[in-house]
Amino acid sequence: MQVLVYDGSFAGWLTAVFEVYEYRFTNASIVPEGHRQDSLFTPTHTVYTSDAKAGRVWRGLQQYLSGRAMKQLSDTFLSELPGREDQMLEYARYALARKQPVEKDFSHRAVKYIADTAQKVHREKHRMEAFVRFQKTKDDLYFATVEPDFNVLPLIAKHFSDRYADQRWLIYDKKRKYGICYDLDKVSFVELDWNPTDTRAEREAILNEEEFPYQQLWKDYFTSTNIKARKNTKLHIRHMPVRYWKYLIEKQPG
């Protein structure tokens, strides 16, 4: 087993794939820096991310894979699931060996893994588009905090800038400590370690005075639109898993 250690970036992974071919590693495993080694004796190879090498692998894959399949691959990467690097490597090798589109070969192990994982990431993207709750600040910024299971902020930026084109907004991923920010012109990534609304006092200091009544109205609406005679908690929780409640206004007490 040849272990390749890369920097955790997508370009790094692509570079690693390049080097698997360059050094003719047959039994290779790609792991991020800081990954715990199972055995001291496994030979490791350090990958230095190279845009040139990454670009060549990307273009090579593009020859055989559709735009959709390429996107599935990069979405799978955003899942951050341990071990995805190897599944993606297997997928890439399979596509490059067969020299034809393989994305519909659902009974192939790696193809299925990519399809399923991309699907999971897509679901999380969709959930974030649904569950982001903006709060308006005194200086008219709409901000939201989220903690998505997967690293989906890059995937939702377009949805929010298309939709909320006339308001400034910021969506902050508290788990990964970065946010996407729209300034009425373009979306940019910002790194910050920020915790603006932990206490009531903090909230009052920064939030627009209309914010509280509107949150209350939304809670009122959520309660009165429910039909008690049809209560179905199982279904409710399946659609809105409890781990997302933390940032949902309508699920806060009071």
């Binding site: 649904a130 569950f131 084109a165 429910n226 039909i227 908690t233 809105m240």
Partner: peptide, 28 residues
Amino acid sequence: KNENKGLGNASNGICHAYTEDGRCVSLL
């Protein structure tokens, strides 16, 4: 589509919340 840098667009409906009876809340 959102035109002239206005507010909003409408394409694939999103369920923003689910009531306790499990129904989708997407519209006011």
